[in-house]
């Protein structure tokens, strides 16, 4: 039984059947990649996991509980963190404040009114944020405004914020999109390290095959809203159906 179980999920936007009969089973502590050509429905599927979209049919179970109909913040509190295609961080705030927000959210839940003490007197939070920044090599940038960092650093910060919440499932939506080769390689190394060092399940959507084959234990190929094959990376590489989906029938 997997940590994330998707059964018979379908989603229609007007005349477009974006997803149909999607079955997916993400095993605990694995790295599961979802690949597929443009318009295959990868992002739509991911949005169904985090409360941004509600599928028309089917079920999405996380650790035995349905996530459907829950608000994004509730799903996050269940243990699912999401990294976006373009890094979503608090750009107007400093790197340290960004980290502290994530740590507060983990400790205090979706809402807590503590408006009296200075936030820096919360030693537990400050220390946890600092440790995470050290881990991610961002400690020297703690006073910097998040907006002024490089794309790669923004991505690191976003991942750091997600990890500081000790999620059980980390969802990555094309984490290397638009990155330079060096940044991409850094991100791959970072994700490998996270995978090895933590009890965490990773589900990743990615275009870049180099990234997919460096990380994934299991790959699902999505085409026109339906899963085509699911297998380990070795078998996916030479699979005729995959080649067909990516390159068209002529190939």
């Amino acid at each position: 039984m997997g940590i994330l179980e998707v059964k018979n999920v379908g989603k229609r936007f007007g005349g477009l059947q974006a997803l149909s009969e999607v079955e997916l089973n993400v095993a605990e502590n694995s790295c599961h990649a979802i690949i597929g050509p443009n318009g295959a429905g990868k992002s739509t599927l991911l949005n169904c996991f985090v409360g941004k979209l509600i599928p028309d049919t089917g079920s999405v179970m996380f650790d035995g509980q349905s996530v459907l109909g829950r608000k994004p913040y509730e799903i996050n509190q269940m243990g699912i963190s999401r990294v976006f295609q373009t890094p979503e961080i608090f750009s107007d705030l400093t790197v340290q404040e960004n980290m502290m927000i994530a740590c507060f959210a983990k400790r205090d839940g979706a809402f807590r009114m503590h408006a009296v003490r200075d936030m820096f007197t919360e030693k537990e939070i400050v220390d946890k944020a600092e440790a995470m920044l050290e881990d991610m090599n961002l400690a020297d940038k703690r006073e910097m405004h998040a907006a002024s960092m490089s794309r790669g650093d923004k991505r690191r910060l976003e991942i750091a914020m997600c990890l500081s919440q000790d999620p059980r499932l980390l969802l990555l939506d094309e984490p290397t999109a638009g990155m330079a080769r060096a940044d991409t390689n850094n991100t791959i190394d970072l994700l490998k390290q996270i995978k090895d060092e933590r009890d965490i399940t990773i589900a990743i959507i990615e275009h870049d095959m180099h990234v997919v084959f460096s990380l994934a234990d299991r790959i699902t190929v999505l085409a026109q809203g339906t899963p085509l094959v699911e297998d380990n990376p070795e078998n996916i590489k030479g699979h005729p159906k995959v080649r067909e989906a990516y390159l068209g029938e002529a190939a």
Binding site: Y73, N76, S81, E88, I101, A105, K106, M161, Q165
Partner: peptide, 10 residues
């Protein structure tokens, strides 16, 4: 960033 806030469990 309200999007990030919601996806940070707040």
């Amino acid at each position: 960033n309200q999007q990030r806030m919601n996806f940070t469990g707040l």
